[in-house]
Design a protein around this nucleic acid. Structure first.
Lengths: 139, 139
DNA sequence: AGGTTATTTAACCAATGAGCTAAGTAGATG
DNA sequence: CATCTACTTAGCTCATTGGTTAAATAACCT
């Protein structure tokens, strides 16, 4: 049951209804009724979807009389974006160029100040045979 | 059942094993055996995970003798990033700053949507700058 | 041909997830 | 209070998913 946060966030995003709800919420906070309107689906179904989104940290809910207005919650989006960042170099050209620059800058910086690395690297579980294999032939 | 592409991609990402596999593949193309090593899991299980990732367009597979090397496929990542872009203004400060001009112009539209209001969502414009701009400062 | 290695397919099972209807709760209002 | 509106919970299906073991395929190597 206790799925890690990133997993529940991705799972929540893996449903078109839920993504449509989020798209609507990107326009602004609104009620459950309002959110349900576009869908040919029972209200309880929507309620469940909202629960999933909330549990995934993608929305938060307030209380206003009998309404429970929903709004986007940024944190989980940020998490997803962060994770995705590990792969950005595979498709984002400008990122690659920037990355190259940063590498250079880091190298220079390292040359100036010798590193004092006492970092706690605990789990070398993914023991990779080759540290970094470069030279993909991909456009 | 043919789930739409974005849904199957998110679904594929909603599993820690599969994300770990992708993380390994970010270091470079490798075989199924190699990918399976870190996991306490049968080989068929890994094979299934790879099938899911492939069907989601997150990896592609080659053929080299009896090995079927896997590598990252950028397209689906790009799709996810694109979708996420619709929400970037909710958390990315630099994005917001650049978008600030438009924001002022549309200050009226944002407001708060009182739940009882019956107004139609007649402005489907999702205020997103057309050019992707991303001031990433990772690490 | 026969064997070893790499990987997939088949058949099964337990758990989850998305949908439904019907009933329950909470707050506003007559 | 009674009722209406706005939701949520409960209980039930049915399909999908993540894992298993056993068997099949595929390519290489004697």
């Amino acid at each position: 049951m206790p799925l890690d946060p990133l997993s529940s966030t991705f799972a929540a995003l893996a449903d078109p209804t839920r993504r449509a709800i989020l798209a609507r919420l990107a326009l602004g906070e609104t009620s459950v009724m309002e959110l349900a309107k576009p869908f040919d689906m029972s209200l309880p179904a929507i309620s469940k979807h909202l629960k999933v989104l909330e549990h995934a940290g993608l929305i938060s809910r307030g209380r206003e009389a009998q309404w429970r207005p929903c709004r986007i919650a940024p944190d989980s989006f940020k998490q997803v974006d962060g994770w995705l960042g590990n792969f950005r170099r595979f498709w984002d050209e400008s990122f690659n160029r920037l990355d190259g620059l940063l590498e250079e800058m880091k190298a220079e910086e390292a040359a100036k100040a010798p590193p004092r690395s006492n970092r706690k690297v605990s789990n070398p579980k993914v023991r990779v045979t080759k540290e970094k294999q470069r030279g993909r032939t991909r456009g």
